[in-house]
């Protein structure tokens, strides 16, 4: 099975400091698996799923792509949910710069991105995990089959995705488990573990409080405080969730409730 890594922050560092960082990450990602799963690390995810400001500039991006190539790694570009009008225009600019690149995966987390990618045949849209609205809640205990599925169980929905050239679907290792439907299927499924998003916001927990004047405003200017610190919430049982800038993540390393035979790629998100 393919293994990708998705450093939720500092993507660039992980490629540029490859010799120091990558081996330890792979060890960390694979230590929880039995030896029966043969994982082949071959891909890095770059970008951000919750904030367009964390997407690398075109210059940096090209450097990362080169760095990954040197390491014989493929690259998937993660594009954010909640994309602003300005952000959408910036992505158009970035994609124009990538027109001459070989086939590249774009992880799509807002509907408009599917529309935008129609004009770029070398860029392959992948259905991002934020577009799959399945419940993700660290507090949930129980077993309900209704919660193990989402719109992906409806064939008309996957047919529309196929119309937009989507052949790969990304899922989260949600605590309640997943039922993966076949829907005819020429679809491939990827699974993220262990950090799973619970909620995104346009009001950054630190960016919005760190400025004078337009305090708490939507899309307030920031100094990328999320790169420096985060909030850890601890419940009565000691279970933690992490608030990083505009996003809250939970952790689930347990893959027992997933039929891994349906999964073609694991993505270690950390």
């Amino acid at each position: 099975m393919d293994l990708g890594i998705f450093p939720i922050l500092d993507n660039e560092d992980y490629v540029e400091q490859k010799h120091i960082l990558l081996p330890s990450i792979i060890d960390n990602a694979t230590k929880d698996f039995s030896k029966s799963i043969n994982l082949k690390f071959n891909r890095i995810y770059v970008g951000s799923e919750f904030c367009e400001r964390l997407f690398p500039s075109p210059k940096k991006l090209l450097r990362i792509l080169r760095g990954a190539e040197e390491l014989n790694l493929k690259t998937s570009l993660v594009t954010p949910a909640m994309l602003t009008e300005t952000g959408a225009k910036q992505f158009q600019y970035i994609f124009n710069k990538l027109r001459n690149k070989n086939r590249l995966e774009i992880i799509v987390n807002c509907w408009g991105m599917l529309e935008l990618l129609r004009d770029y045949k070398n860029l392959e849209p992948v259905f991002g995990r934020s577009l799959n609205k399945i419940k993700r809640d660290p507090r949930w205990r129980g077993d309900s089959s209704a919660l193990k599925q989402s719109s992906l169980s409806i064939s008309s929905f996957t047919n529309l995705l196929k119309k937009y050239r989507v052949r790969k679907i990304e899922l989260d290792n949600v605590p309640q488990g997943l039922i993966i439907n076949s829907n005819g299927d020429e679809l491939q499924y990827h699974l993220y573990f262990s950090k799973i998003p619970i909620s995104f916001s346009k009001i950054c927990v630190f960016g919005s409080t760190n400025i004078k004047g337009r305090k708490f405003s939507i899309d307030s200017p920031c100094q990328k405080e999320c790169q420096d610190y985060s909030i850890i919430y601890r419940d009565e049982a000691g279970k933690t969730t992490e608030h990083i800038g505009r996003a809250v993540y939970m952790e689930n390393k347990n893959l027992d409730k997933i039929n891994l035979k349906r999964i073609s790629r694991l993505i270690f998100s950390f």
Binding site: R136, W140, R141, F200, Y229, I232, Y233, D235
Partner: peptide, 28 residues
């Protein structure tokens, strides 16, 4: 559109945002 937690339910009495803000917090 991007809040995937329960608003309410049998097992989770309140909204996640309220739950988080009432829990123990530390900075990392």
């Amino acid at each position: 559109a991007n809040c995937f937690a329960f608003h309410a339910g049998k097992k989770v009495r309140i909204r996640l945002c309220a739950n988080l803000l009432n829990s123990i917090k530390e900075l990392s």
